[in-house]
Design a binder for these strands. Structure first.
Length: 123
DNA sequence: CATACCGTCCAAT
DNA sequence: ATTGGACGGTATG
């Protein structure tokens, strides 16, 4: 169980403040919506979407944080659990489809489903 | 401290 | 379509 910044530095759980921010925002994505890596990066005030992606890739809170609701900015699916293609991606799209987000040919059909957060941290 | 990697993005070719 | 550079952060030595 991990609440916001109640992160304790454990040898096995080396969570960084940056990761906490990412996970917080991701966990705030409403059901049936998705967010882009870049949008996510901007939400936390980071210019590097790559860093965000890497943070998600590690994702110590796997199903706890809906990392499957994060897609690329080009409306492509992106990666999942360290994979860019394969069963993992299929699972990701399936999860999103179950929430009302429909992908076709690996592309998001409804860009309206993209959840954009204000530049300011909501906290 | 230095180097390499990354679930990306963008521009150029 | 493919390549390479960029920005920020982490991992490892």
């Amino acid at each position: 169980m991990v609440n916001s910044e109640t992160v304790t530095y454990n040898k096995d759980c080396h969570i960084t403040p940056f990761q906490s921010r990412v996970y917080r925002v991701v966990s705030q994505i409403p059901r049936g919506m998705v967010m882009t890596y870049q949008g996510l990066a901007q939400a936390i005030g980071c210019a590097s979407s790559q860093a965000v992606g890497q943070a998600l890739r590690r994702n110590p809170f796997a199903p706890t944080v809906p990392c499957h609701r994060v897609i690329k900015s080009n409306l492509r699916a992106g990666g999942y659990v360290g994979q860019q293609s394969g069963a993992a991606i299929k699972c990701k799209l399936d999860l999103l489809a179950a929430e009302g987000v429909v992908f076709e040919h690996g592309v998001l059909l409804d860009p309206d489903k993209i959840f954009t957060l204000k530049s300011a941290e909501d906290r």
